[in-house]
Write a protein that binds this DNA or RNA. Structure first.
Lengths: 211, 211
DNA sequence: CAAATTTTTGACCGATTGGACAAACGTTAG
DNA sequence: CTAACGTTTGTCCAATCGGTCAAAAATTTG
């Protein structure tokens, strides 16, 4: 009884199957990229036939778009939590730690974004120049405040944020390389603790205010 | 007059055309990934017909493989130059600078590798666990020596190398995002100088030996 | 129950893919 | 010139792609 103007009302089955498909699509898209993934692959991973999948998402792009929109909020949550009220060094430390935990616990989400950005972000460019830029600019302002107050060393807040993104996401996006280089011993489950220890030292020492 | 056992002897035309194809393939592969790229795209970018291209490279994978093998050396050259004899801080500074210059001057090469690693490195895994691991282990030893000599702060040399890779390559692989966030003013040509200044501060301060 | 609706499937379609192939064309050596 | 060789192209192919459609099956509703 959809009049066409209101938000789609979904049945229980539709809810469940759509979740199933999105979960499968996350797996497939994150390892093959958008163009490298096929509807058949996603359908098989979701345990259903291709026409059945297309009953829930009419086009391949719709799946990807839905995934992206849902994930962006999750992905930016740690930065949103970066707060003006706490101690700067403590805030930065927990931001780095949270980002690294996300790389460990949600590597597929990280790779999905990486794939998209790598290929020129054809489908999420507006979000980058809009929502993302706004958020980063705001947080850069917070960091600048800390610098003016002499709480942390003076540097470029934007590039500071970039470097935190780069170093933490590296452990999700380049996981294969990290493990290959570290080898079976150092590359085991402990690698995230090692990374956390290193990054904390690097950033906290590197940002200590000059006396 | 190829006897079949010796290295392929190539005519002048073969040399030139193969270079043309590899240049075109670098452009296409680095922006679409392997599976997302088509032989037709590469052929068109190289200004020739598809059967003509297949005369020089019999399979799509051969082009990719040749590209990878050629580029790995270039890509690792800065790390190879990291030398035991110079001043540690100076050596690290120029390593970071060289890596950042490569991100600026050869972004396609960086994206090609990123694409490959992101998708599980199906075609270059042996190189990672072999040649790459050997080189990194060796340089980690050099860095460890500096630490023992009290020239730089004690940390994990492997993760130090990872973080330098991550932060510098970020400016090639995530260039679209970097420019979108920085905006037209800060994201102009000067962004690499800003990045260089920031990274130098971060790493050199973060690695200062404790007194 | 039965009717209406939602879900699932097999068969199919045109477009695109990587690649094969023989014929045509160009070049060079004798 | 001519024969041999290297290069280029048009045509074709089987496989795979994203997506359609009608009909069957399952579920919900009255």
């Amino acid at each position: 009884m959809n009049t066409g103007t209101e938000a789609p009302r979904r049945t229980r089955i539709q809810q469940e199957k759509r979740e199933l498909i999105l979960e499968a699509a996350l797996e497939v898209f994150s390892t093959n990229g958008f163009r490298g993934s096929t509807i058949d692959q996603i359908a098989e991973a979701a345990g259903m036939s291709k026409p059945n999948l297309l009953y829930y998402f009419r086009r391949k792009e719709d799946i990807h778009e839905t995934l992206m929109q849902r994930l962006l909020d999750t992905w930016l949550a740690p930065l949103r939590e970066l707060d003006d009220i706490g101690d700067p060094m403590t805030e930065l430390r927990s931001y780095i730690r949270r980002k690294l935990e996300m790389a460990r616990d949600f590597p597929r989400e990280s790779r999905l974004f990486a794939n998209e950005i790598l290929q020129g972000a054809p489908r999420i460019m507006p979000l980058l120049a809009g929502e993302l830029k706004t958020l980063v600019d705001e947080k850069a302002g917070v960091i600048k405040g800390w610098m003016r107050a002499g709480k942390i060393a003076r540097t470029d807040p934007w590039h500071l944020i970039f470097s935190i993104w780069a170093t933490t996401q590296h452990y999700a996006d380049f996981d294969v390389q990290v493990r290959a280089v570290l080898g079976p011993n150092r590359g085991g489950d402990g690698r995230f603790e090692d990374a956390a220890r290193f990054l904390e030292q690097l950033f906290l020492e590197g940002l200590k205010p000059k006396a």
